[in-house]
Design a protein around this nucleic acid. Structure first.
Length: 895
RNA sequence: GGGCGAUUGACUCAGUUGGUUCAGAGUGCCUCCCUUACAAGGAGGAAGUCACUGGUUCGAAUCCAGUAUCGCCCACCA
């Protein structure tokens, strides 16, 4: 029969499950290469396999899903390539800790091969967690193409790239100072060492001269490195030290002679103007050492303890202990002159936060300058655009000062460096395939370089390695270059910039044309959400409590282009909070749910056609408004104004559609017949169309309602809203005149409601109202739509009267120069009415004064455009007219 | 030491090219309403000299300069 039973509250859980299954089974996210349709593609910033979904992922992937769903509906062959990153250091650390926890063994105990096997096992077991979580959010990736940076194909691409760059002379091996993490025991790139301001000390140390004279005082922040000093440098122009250059000093504690040298690097104004030179443990000192042919002395081991070169007394001490001991001993010897407080930047490992060590070692590097140049051009000439635009400068600044990239890591988990050494003749062989025989001496005694490559050395190939490069696959031809990259600004250097370089170098074309950089997700105190702070909100919990649509919508509506996002959420078991970010989306989903419930319930199973019914003002108004929003939302999504699109839809659906249109059609539905059929159909069509516009942001509830509505309408144009055709605006249906008339009616209704409220006449009681229209046109419009006024303002009798003829026992108001009189039964509180009217008059008086002020300004009259002046005049006149009427009404109260 | 953001009602934030619709929204607050879609709701209301100072302009939340506070990024000065 015709009854439709629908739950009163939107049940996100059941509905999300249903459609997830449906989408997955039908593979709507899958895109096919070479169909000839216009392609649109996005590659996901691959989350680490160790990652669990946090709000940053939630935000970024919602943005990508919005774009991909939008474009898919617009008819593009839309590919969203998903996948994960092997995350060398992070994953190795996690698995090491796991093994240590479970068996007490170190990775060395386990051995390289078995350890790697363990990592793969970890990846099989938990590496897909985040992918499952992305699915729960509704991400419509092309799951059939999911990739992993350690896949065979991607590994092949990595090797290929290494070999090509090596052959081109862009990869080299050398002994340089790099950032070293003593805990992870690997080299890091400059970007992986995060510098933080820390308060430390500046120690002033006296190095006596070999000839027994006073010598020199140097200042250092790291006294323990003095054990590896090989010289003291001063500025050649520094008069204070003129006579000392070339002389010998005695290095305290070590007892060896070191020279005083002159180097421009030294700033005479800092410290004492004399700097100790430790080439093995400071990048600047290393440069000085090279210039002066000084042999570096490495006094530290890879684990951060002191080496044998530090001397028997210090060997084996941690760097912290060594520092203490050096200071103590120097104090004892009287060589410590003074200690000052000093603020300086200290590098930390971006994975484990241990203080990094500038460390001299042999590493592999990529020469970046030549790769950077075309990548700079691509941004400068506008082939690639950043949104928001301000990141362009950040990108260019880094690229223009780019330094060589240290790509070797002393880890086990990652892509092994494809370099082989002959143990017999020392030949170095770089090869795409494993080398078993020396190409020079024929020996079979070959070892592969033990190091692996930086994780980012595979990520920078992601936009094309995932589509099959180095083979020219149909996918690569179709989907490369990709369209948009959406990511966090933190990884511009790590990833975005390098992808641009790699894309141009290996594909001969940019990897994407638009880069959207979203803001950082923070808590209500502005702190970045992080595991260590424990202030993270678990998106899955939000999905549990509020639903995935609510999670998505709530984040999107507060994300102004590239601005940071602040979240208030106490959690499932947390204390009640004044404001909960995710309520916005949940309430909205519920509102939509109930709007559809009204239509579906009243339609009783199906909605027929009644095309002959004459359209009302509201019918044409909602259609006009809807078509207007179609084009603005399309525009907003094209321009990454996601929050505006969300805001616009929220307002249209909630206020225009629900508050006005549905309220207007309720009595018409109650009347039944063809009119009922017609308005139900109109409402259902508008709502179904709104669902399409909203679908990219809230995929689940929109699918559910779109399906239900179409079923009732008997108009299922496609299997899923996901693949339905994006609503195009019919500009012919946008009618400003209709909108103007409707606004007049709305304004009148609001005025009546306000008067009633202020005069304590609840909407529950019907009231008699008289209207004095401003002119013939107003009379026509209000007369034609008097039923709206009666229904929505709860009016018993509506009559028209002349202007300024206030009926006795009534309260007056004005809207668009139309006068309204609400007849009050019983005694009218004249004082109350007097106060009300006076306030209205006062408000208008001030407004008129401000306009007149403008209009009496000669400069304004002579310089402002005529339209503006006319506009101001009209405003003044209209308001004056309204005021006159209000005054008349006030006066009529006198008797 | 550079660079970049932010500063708008009690709270959290919008505000594209300076001028009706620009002083907005949501939350909170106050009043009324459990009206047959929704109390996770409806109707109405109070509340802001748009951080400060100066400038450009007929006209500035919006453009320019400077100041303050907060936050972020970058930087080899020991």
């Amino acid at each position: 029969m015709g009854t439709v039973e629908i739950e009163k509250i939107y049940n996100s859980k059941a509905i999300e499950e249903k459609w997830l299954k449906f989408w997955e089974e039908n593979g709507f996210g899958h895109a096919v290469a070479g169909t000839g349709k216009n392609p649109y593609s996005i590659v996901i910033p691959p989350p680490n396999i160790t990652a669990v979904l946090h709000l940053g992922h939630a935000l970024n992937n919602t943005i990508q899903d919005i774009l991909i769903r939008f474009k898919r509906m617009q008819g593009y062959e839309s590919e969203w390539m998903p996948g994960t990153d092997h995350a060398g250091i992070a994953t190795q650390n996690v698995v090491e800790r796991k093994i240590s926890r479970e068996t007490g063994k170190t990775r060395q105990d386990v051995g390289r091969e078995d350890f790697i096997r363990e990592v793969w096992k970890f990846r099989e077991e938990t590496g897909g967690t985040i992918i499952e979580q992305l699915k729960r959010m509704g991400c419509s990736c092309d799951w059939k193409r999911e990739r992993f940076t350690m896949d065979e194909g991607l590994s092949r691409a990595v090797t290929e790239v290494f070999v090509r760059l090596y052959e081109k002379g862009l990869i080299y091996r050398g002994k340089y100072i790099i950032n070293w993490c003593p805990r992870c025991q690997t080299a890091l790139s400059d970007e992986e060492a995060e510098h933080e301001e820390q308060s430390g000390h500046l120690w002033y140390l006296r190095y006596p001269a070999a000839d027994g004279s006073e010598g020199v005082v140097v200042a250092t922040t790291r006294p323990e490195t003095m054990l590896g000093d090989v010289a003291v440098a001063v500025n050649p122009a520094d008069q204070r030290y003129k006579g000392l250059v070339g002389k010998k000093l005695i290095l305290p504690l070590v007892g060896k002679e070191i020279p005083v040298i002159a180097d421009d690097f030294v700033d005479p104004a800092f410290g004492t103007g004399a700097v100790k030179v430790t080439p093995a443990h400071d990048p600047n000192d290393f440069e000085i050492g090279l210039r002066h042919h000084l042999e570096p002395v490495i006094v530290m081991n890879g684990d951060g303890t002191m080496s044998a070169h530090a001397g028997a007394e210090f060997e084996g001490l941690t760097r912290e202990a060594a520092r203490k001991k050096v200071v103590e001993k120097l104090t004892g010897l009287g060589n410590l002159v003074k200690i000052e407080d000093h603020l300086h930047a200290v590098g930390h490992c971006y994975r484990c936060h241990t203080i990094t060590e500038p460390y001299l070692s042999s590493q592999w590097f990529v020469r970046m300058k030549t790769l950077a140049e075309p990548a700079i051009d691509a941004v400068k000439d506008g082939r690639i655009t950043f949104y928001p635009e301000r990141w362009t400068k950040v990108y260019l600044g880094w690229m223009e000062n780019i330094r060589d990239w240290c790509i070797s890591r002393q880890l086990w988990w990652g892509h092994r460096i494809p370099v082989y050494y002959c143990n017999v003749c020392g030949e170095v062989m770089v090869s795409r395939t494993p080398v078993t025989e020396c190409t020079k001496c024929g020996s079979a005694d070959i070892v592969q370089d033990p190091d692996v490559l930086d994780t980012w050395f595979s990520s920078w190939l992601w936009p094309f390695s995932t589509f099959g490069w180095p083979d020219t696959t149909p996918e690569l031809r179709t989907f490369y270059p990709t369209s948009t990259l959406s990511t966090a600004p933190e990884i511009i250097f790590f990833w975005v910039a390098r992808m641009i370089m790699a894309g141009i170098e290996f594909m001969g074309d940019i990897p994407f044309s638009k880069v959207y950089l979203h803001g950082t997700v923070r808590d209500e105190q502005g702190r970045k959400m992080s595991k260590s702070l424990g202030n993270g909100v678990d998106p899955l919990e939000v999905i549990e409590t509020h639903g995935a649509d609510a999670l998505r919508f709530s984040m999107i509506i507060i994300t102004a282009q590239g601005q940071d996002v602040f979240i208030s959420y106490a959690g499932k078991n947390g204390k009640k909070q004044e404001h909960n970010t995710f309520d916005t989306g949940r309430n909205f989903a519920n509102k939509i749910w109930n709007a559809s419930r009204l239509i579906l319930t009243l339609s009783g199973g199906s909605i027929g056609r009644a095309d002959s019914v004459k359209k009302d003002l509201a019918d044409r108004w909602i259609v006009s408004r809807f078509n207007r929003e179609k084009s603005s939302i399309t525009q907003m999504l094209e321009n990454f104004k996601f929050n505006e699109a969300a805001q616009t839809l929220y307002h249209f659906i909630w206020h225009d559609f629900c508050d006005w249109y549905l309220e207007i059609i309720k009595p018409r539905i109650a009347r039944g017949g063809d009119e009922k059929t017609f308005v139900l159909r109109n409402a259902a069509e508008i709502l179904a169309g709104s669902m399409q516009l909203l679908h990219p942001i809230m995929p689940f509830v929109t699918e559910e309602i779109w399906q239900l509505l179409n079923e009732h309408l008997g108009e299922k144009q496609s299997a899923s809203i996901m693949i339905s055709k994006w609503p195009e605006a019919d500009t012919g249906l946008i009618d400003p005149e209709i909108e103007r008339e409707m606004e007049m009616v709305q304004s009148l209704i609001t005025t009546i409601r306000t008067i009633r409220n202020e005069m304590n006449v609840p909407l529950g009681e019907k009231a008699d109202v008289m209207v004095a229209p401003a002119d013939e046109d107003a009379r026509r419009v209000l007369d034609a739509n008097s039923s709206y006024i009666m229904d929505l303002a709860s009016v018993k009798h509506l009559a028209f009267t002349e202007q300024s003829k206030r009926p006795p026992k009534s309260a007056a108001g004005i809207s668009d120069k139309n006068e309204v009189f609400v007849l009050l039964e019983g005694l009218v509180d004249f004082d109350r009415e007097r106060v009300r009217l006076s306030k209205e008059i006062e408000r208008r008086g001030k407004f008129i004064a401000s306009i007149e002020n403008k209009l009496s300004n000669e400069n304004f009259l002579s310089k402002a455009p005529v339209e503006i002046i006319e506009q101001e005049r009209r405003k003044a006149n209209d308001t004056r007219e309204e005021m006159k009427k209000l005054i008349a009404n006030l006066e009529s109260l006198g008797e």
